[in-house]
């Protein structure tokens, strides 16, 4: 299983179409396998990001705000999309692995703005 988190530094990116970074986790039996892979895109593009997610054969993606068009496309491609998520990628991943991550989740770690920029 592959989980892709659309990220911005160590946080989930606020917007899918403006993100230029994804963190890819391979998951076996509810645990990550090896180090996560970070892929940088040459520029922000929702369509290119969809292409990358399909190419990576991801099963689940976690993102912030996403447009209906991209959301429906990914769902149609049988990918589980958990959107409107706010939080650090590490904390969000933990919840996802535990099967407790919901759309609109605010994962309170250190998401107070001070450390991100």
């Amino acid at each position: 299983m592959k989980i892709v988190i659309i990220s911005k530094a160590e946080y989930v990116a606020p917007r899918f179409d403006l993100a230029t970074e994804v963190t890819i986790y391979s998951v076996i039996s509810g645990r990550t396998k090896g180090e996560p892979r970070t892929v940088l895109l040459p520029g922000p593009s929702g369509d290119d990001l969809c292409g990358l997610i399909l190419k990576e054969d991801a099963n689940m993606i976690v993102c912030g705000g996403i447009e209906e068009e991209h959301y429906q496309y990914l769902v149609w491609k049988k990918i589980k999309v958990v959107d409107r998520v706010i939080g650090k990628t590490a904390d969000v991943l933990s919840l996802a692995l535990a099967g407790n991550l919901q759309a609109g989740a605010i994962v309170r770690g250190e998401v107070d703005g001070g450390s991100e920029k």
Binding site: Y11, P14, G64, G65, I86, G104, I106, V111, D112, E116
Partner: peptide, 18 residues
């Protein structure tokens, strides 16, 4: 935004407003 005020209090606005 789909968030209640008390949920997002203390979070940077760009993550909430998108």
């Amino acid at each position: 935004t789909g968030y209640a005020s008390e949920e997002v209090r203390g979070i940077r606005e760009d993550y909430v407003l998108r």
